[in-house]
Design a binder for these strands. Sequence first.
DNA 1: TGCAAAATAGAACGGTCGTACTATTCTGTC
DNA 2: GACAGAATAGTACGACCGTTCTATTTTGCA
Lengths: 202, 202
Amino acid sequence: MLLETKGQRTRRAILDRAAALATEEGLEPLSIGRLAEATGMSKSGLFAHFGSKEDLKLATVDHAASVFVEEVIAPAREAPKGIARVWALCDHMIGYSERQVFPGGCFFASAAFEFNNRPGPVRDAIRDNLASWLSYLEHAVEQAQDLGELDARVDAGELAFELDALAQAANGQYQLFGDQAVFDRARRAIRERLESLRKIAA
Amino acid sequence: MLLETKGQRTRRAILDRAAALATEEGLEPLSIGRLAEATGMSKSGLFAHFGSKEDLKLATVDHAASVFVEEVIAPAREAPKGIARVWALCDHMIGYSERQVFPGGCFFASAAFEFNNRPGPVRDAIRDNLASWLSYLEHAVEQAQDLGELDARVDAGELAFELDALAQAANGQYQLFGDQAVFDRARRAIRERLESLRKIAA
DNA sequence: TGCAAAATAGAACGGTCGTACTATTCTGTC
DNA sequence: GACAGAATAGTACGACCGTTCTATTTTGCA
């Protein structure tokens, strides 16, 4: 038996397309028929991989989460703990938006706004993923503070909020205005904010 | 003849509901039937006010823009030019989100993400409104610099980007997490950023 | 190579969508 | 108070939605 059965391979291919299309057209309005057409499958053949559209949406969110980890979290983990890692997280977050890993920008930014006010498991999954990102960023800030690299008087949650806000704004404005300069703008703002809080080694 | 004919009154009531519902359900998926039900009208009766759904969407965006001006721009214009007005713009922007002028948060934040990748007049209208907000904020920053209240070495566009990012993040996170503390968080970050750039009167 | 099981396709369902057409009710002016 | 025109309602249409059921093809191990 191969490492991956054919069904699993197809399923992953579907979810890849689904996550991509969801950032362009939205997760809810992305129809089974549209997705089947985009993957060259029949509606029912595709549908059989998921019990329902709700399941498809949930699986798409999960898939996008693993892409995010792969593209942002994992590479940043290679940077040393401290300011370097905080910076790496922000930089890779912006890079993931800039490189258009998803054609419509950050999957979770789009999905969060779409499901803001639609209670249910899909919204919960999106919320949990974003909360987890924010708390990971906050944790990295705390590490930098514990290492004496960052001013410990600033609230870690507050700083994480600010850094994420800048990265998110770059993502959103690039999608809307199409000007890549926003990425530099966000990077510079983040770098300057971090520098302003850097502690000289005692 | 009255100042406003009955048709105009109805039309405005429809657009009020449409803008509100759009922030909850989205502008595209908000159907004519759904909106008719919400306003107690028949589908066709409502539809007759707009030649097409596209027209309805465009009218809704215009209506939301006038609400935004009324709730954010106009009150901020009462603050004196300079740092005070920059602060007032941000503070009212956050307040407009906090008070839930639209039940699903800032109309343009939701709409921008929804129409990011859907070319057409609706996307253009949303983009133009957001561009106009950003340039107005930038202009206020420039005024504060010209008045010698703000460090003139910082790029006005860059600072406007940062301030807007913080306000937008508060809007987004509140919608998703429901914790009002993000508004204080954004206000504090904005206030501290402005204070760090305040120039002592020469 | 054969064969059960997995994967995919086809056709059909009730429901809702945006829209067009026609009929009815309401408004405001003379 | 009548009457033209505006405002609203009723009905119907084709298209697509998610989903179900049944048939067909493909897969991978015995």
